[in-house]
Design a protein around this nucleic acid. Structure first.
Lengths: 109, 109
DNA sequence: TACCAGTACATAGTATTACTGAATAGTGCC
DNA sequence: GGCACTATTCAGTAATACTATGTACTGGTA
């Protein structure tokens, strides 16, 4: 992955993961796999797990340990009320930024 | 400014400044003022100056010292060929990210 | 003259976040 | 037993924006 993408993900990856969780609960391994399928070619696994622990400690998600048939138990995360609120705020911030950048992009043509 | 915005700017602020310079050359104080007018309410001056030095050292911009009538001389930065190329790459990265996020936002509704 | 506001740039130290590169563990198949 | 796949965790590093200053030049004013 390019360095630009790496830096751009700081601050957005968290929102991306919360958005994924807002659709339905998921666990780390699954989230990483889905991100990779979607073109975030090599987001490190460690990055996602660290992020999940962070948002858990901030009280944005609930966790449930569910046994897996294929390996160690999964930690399934789901967005709680506070998480939804935080995600709303994320979308507002993102929209503002996207709008400003869109404008700049137009100007530069 | 919110903490979310702060984190989101990592990786994008550089692109934003390069985009501003691609329209026409500018100096630090001017760029800071313009950003603030555009709603990036309190981007620290130090941040912009540090960024300008960074992109200069990476060879993305040219610098010219021009005397000011109102204070110390201005360091006017302008995008060079390499900078334009880098900016192109930035837009590609941004577009990809924006598309993915747009999709996620739709799904979450 | 002394002081202040506005213009303009610079820097030391801090916080956050994603990465690399491991290690640990459970299950099923050869 | 060893390998592949699933699944989580952690120590150390790099990049970038922030805070909080400090420096310096000009013009106006009391």
């Amino acid at each position: 992955m390019g360095k630009q993408m790496t830096e751009m993900l700081k601050g957005t990856l968290e929102g991306i993961v919360l958005a994924i969780l807002s659709v339905r609960p998921a666990y780390g391994y699954e989230i990483t796999a889905r991100l990779r399928e979607q073109g975030f070619s090599d987001i490190a696994e460690g990055t996602v797990y660290a992020l999940l622990i962070r948002i858990e400690q901030r009280g944005l998600v609930g966790v449930e340990k569910i046994p897996s048939e294929m390996g160690p138990p999964r930690k399934v995360y789901s967005l709680n009320a506070q998480g939804h609120e935080y995600l709303e705020e994320f979308w507002r911030t993102w929209s503002f930024l996207a709008e400003q950048l869109e404008q700049l992009h137009e100007e530069g043509k």
